[in-house]
Design a binder for these strands. Sequence first.
DNA 1: GACAACGTGCGACATTGTCGCACGCTCGGC
DNA 2: GCCGAGCGTGCGACAATGTCGCACGTTGTC
Lengths: 252, 252
Amino acid sequence: MIQSIERSSAVLRLLAAGPDRLRVKEIADALGLPKSTAHSILRTLEHVGFAEQDPRTARYRLGRGLTELGKAGLDVNELRSRALDWADTLAARSVESVRIGALQSGSARVVHHVFRPDDTTQSMDNGLIIPAHATSLGKVLLAYDAPAADAVARAGLDAYTRRTVTNRRALAGSLGEIRAQGWGGAVEEWEMGRAGIAAPLRTFGGLVVGAIGIYGPVERICDSRQRPRPALVELVCATAQSISRDLTGPRS
Amino acid sequence: MIQSIERSSAVLRLLAAGPDRLRVKEIADALGLPKSTAHSILRTLEHVGFAEQDPRTARYRLGRGLTELGKAGLDVNELRSRALDWADTLAARSVESVRIGALQSGSARVVHHVFRPDDTTQSMDNGLIIPAHATSLGKVLLAYDAPAADAVARAGLDAYTRRTVTNRRALAGSLGEIRAQGWGGAVEEWEMGRAGIAAPLRTFGGLVVGAIGIYGPVERICDSRQRPRPALVELVCATAQSISRDLTGPRS
DNA sequence: GACAACGTGCGACATTGTCGCACGCTCGGC
DNA sequence: GCCGAGCGTGCGACAATGTCGCACGTTGTC
């Protein structure tokens, strides 16, 4: 039984008990904890949005995160705005178009799109719903959301090219591989001649709330053996990690 | 920032995301955790009532405890039923009457009462509201609930005897002492010639949900120097700890 | 205006949570 | 109906992590 979780639940119950905001000392006394420990728990609870601190009185009360448990975890707009700069940077460094996606009602949706720097003949993909099982972005999202993956597989895996994964078992294996290596690739699974590399975006506790990836011609994305170029993979993963660090960093 | 709390919040978000119940493996994969770790977190969350496991499918979903955060922490009836046997035992061993109390809307209420074994001339105190600042039971409850203590002090500290604590500062000091030693006593603060010894009842994370204590003639409760007899204090504390262990033990 | 009490941060220690592994079991497929 | 894979669960050892004590700077109070 994990001590800190038990304690945090007690803190939440305490905060919920009365309409009054509570001081650190009061909580510490109520639970028989040192001030430091109580403070540490409160900081974490505030960090994840389960508690809030009144900036004026320094007292704590329940946070918005608890009531929002019923809804979608993270606002798509916030994800977008927080990832904007990083996406631009990734596009510049990789010299490819960049997409950020999130799962919405079980399917993958592009929530942000950065054009390839020196290429104007592209379509704006914002808001586009892309096949989750046939793109790197979609597969990464599915890899960390079992129910969605299930729903997609159950709905039927349409073939877009001859390399599209249409076998449920093969898809499950692919998703497992993505989890194992922390990123996912898709080569000509959606459109012939095009490939993508994507990595998950994580919030507190490792919760995946989206994915970011690059998409472009196979000959630029992959090496001679049709495998995603390690340098590009590294770039995508590093960007994803930076965004994740950002998401867990300043307030939520 | 406490890792396990962040992770547990992620688990809760995950459980809240979809209406489907989730498997341990799915949660572990989604957060990038080993199965064991995820399982440990889930067990704890279930333990504190934030998650529930379907006994048939072994899958997890959100628990009732989360939605009940807004209401009183622990049902008084449950506290009563769980403490019944222990209260009887305490009455038998101490040969005194035993009371169990809880805070209700800022004042102390007797939720259970066991008569002194060989004494029939007693009144039934069940449901009785007793002065929180002038009884051992009430003071123990106040010691771990700062807002209630505040409200009581603000409402005015009526004097029932010449030994009743009526000074706010003195009361605060008394409550601090109770926290420090883990039990509280009151000698002729409510009724002349009567004294009490009480200790807190704790749930998960050390949250105080009630108090148990004995009450009787000063000459039996206290030694020659008007101080609570150590043997009785020990008895009360041991009983309180047993009940607390019970409260954190089998399901909530 | 002075004191006390609070919130906050840091560091060292040791407790605690984490991880890897293995056991039974159930579910699904051949 | 049998076999196999995959799951939930439990244990143990390690070391990472949370805990605690202390001290600072500040706020609120008398």
